[in-house]
């Protein structure tokens, strides 16, 4: 029992450290990649190739004064960024980074919490993220912030629906809610050579889920809650210092979570095709699998970043049209077709 607690605590500390470090690297990567896309050099002064730039930014934010507007509702104003960051970090608890490994006779699953409702936990926690943004917009007592908060609540609620429905397709194929089981399902092969990754089995669900993930993380084609040219920064206009930093961190942590969930649900998680035939020792194999997971996530993150610098923002009516008239019917049809095909196969 005690060793179990210890292992959980160790995993927790390691995961939080890794996530925060990845957030910092992601901020750096975004700035550098965006610079390269615009034929600029980007941050290259602090540390080798500017790698420490994001850390310096965080230190700057820590040292800034925390300004609260006079007419803001202070308790909620303080609470909102905490909700955002807590939600962003806690979704990470159920992501399986690798297969079960054996350390000194203990079976260690490479995930913090093995929740049996798995994906439902994820959906419910991410839907709490709306509160952070909406409360921040409301408590700032600023029309731009309020508009940003309202937009974000409308957007997140609309897209959560298609997000949940696109996951149903995956759940029907794998027949379980546990994320580690879903990954294990994807380690099989179709016709002996094609890895049964869910994005091959469920292409429509994959596309709709990715689009919904963009909307949920407020990333660029759907960044209406922030929309700098219209809303002066949106819900975090009235935030400064560490509290702004928390929102900033939460945004990127959400992005990492989205990347991890996309990898887990659709891209085969830690599964590296045919690596189990290489004859490696179990420990080496699981290390390789963790590495595979990281590489897959890296590619998803790069996709997020490149999309941000490629596609212009949707208009608000377009956003709602896509959400309700395109994504929702598409996911519903996908669920129906998946059910029919599963029935026919049986």
């Amino acid at each position: 029992m005690q060793s179990l607690l210890l292992i959980s605590a160790l995993k927790f500390v390691a995961f939080v450290a890794v996530v925060l470090l990845t957030v910092i690297m992601l901020v750096y990567a975004e700035r550098r990649v965006s610079a390269f896309i615009q034929n600029r050099l980007g941050p290259n002064r602090v540390g080798p190739w500017g790698l420490l730039q994001a850390i310096v930014d965080v230190v700057k934010l820590l040292l800034k004064e925390d300004v609260v507007p006079r007419n803001a509702y202070k308790p909620v104003h303080d609470l909102a960024p905490i909700i955002s960051i807590a939600v962003a970090l806690s979704t990470f608890a159920i992501i399986p980074f690798g297969n079960t490994i054996n350390v000194y006779g203990h079976e260690v699953k490479l995930m913090i919490a093995d929740v049996n409702v798995g994906i439902l936990y994820l959906l419910s926690i991410t839907s709490l993220g709306v509160y952070g943004v909406t409360l921040a917009g409301w408590s700032s007592n600023n029309k731009y912030s309020l508009l940003g908060g309202l937009r974000s609540s409308a957007q997140m609620i609309s897209y959560e629906l298609s997000m949940g429905l696109s996951i149903i397709g995956v759940l029907m194929v794998s027949g379980t809610l546990r994320l580690d089981q879903i990954v294990l399902q994807q380690t099989k092969y179709l016709w002996g050579w094609m890895p049964a990754w869910n994005f091959l089995l469920q292409p429509v669900a994959f596309i709709t889920f990715v689009v919904a993930a963009f909307a949920e993380t407020n990333r660029l084609p759907f960044d209406l809650p922030e929309a700098e040219p219209e809303l002066v920064g949106g819900y975090h206009t009235e935030y400064s210092g560490l509290k702004f930093g928390l929102f900033f961190l939460a945004e990127y942590a959400n992005m990492i979570t989205a990347g991890a969930v996309i990898t887990t649900l659709f891209l085969g998680g830690w599964h590296l095709p045919f690596a189990e035939n290489l004859g490696l020792s179990p420990l080496m194999l699981s290390l390789l699998q963790v590495l595979t997971f990281c590489v897959k996530m890296f590619f998803v993150m790069m996709f997020f970043i490149v999309v941000r610098w490629t596609i212009p923002r949707f208009r608000y009516d377009q956003l709602m049209n896509i959400g309700w008239k395109l994504m929702l019917p598409l996911t519903l049809v996908n669920v129906l077709v998946t059910g029919l095909v599963l029935l026919l196969i049986q």
């Binding site: 896309i37 050099l41 490149v306 999309v307 490629t310």
Partner: peptide
């Protein structure tokens, strides 16, 4: 569009160190 942006990444830079 993404092919365009990715191609743009490998072009020479306009800015200087």
């Amino acid at each position: 569009g993404m092919r365009q942006t990715i191609a743009e990444m490998f072009k020479p830079k306009f800015t200087f160190r």
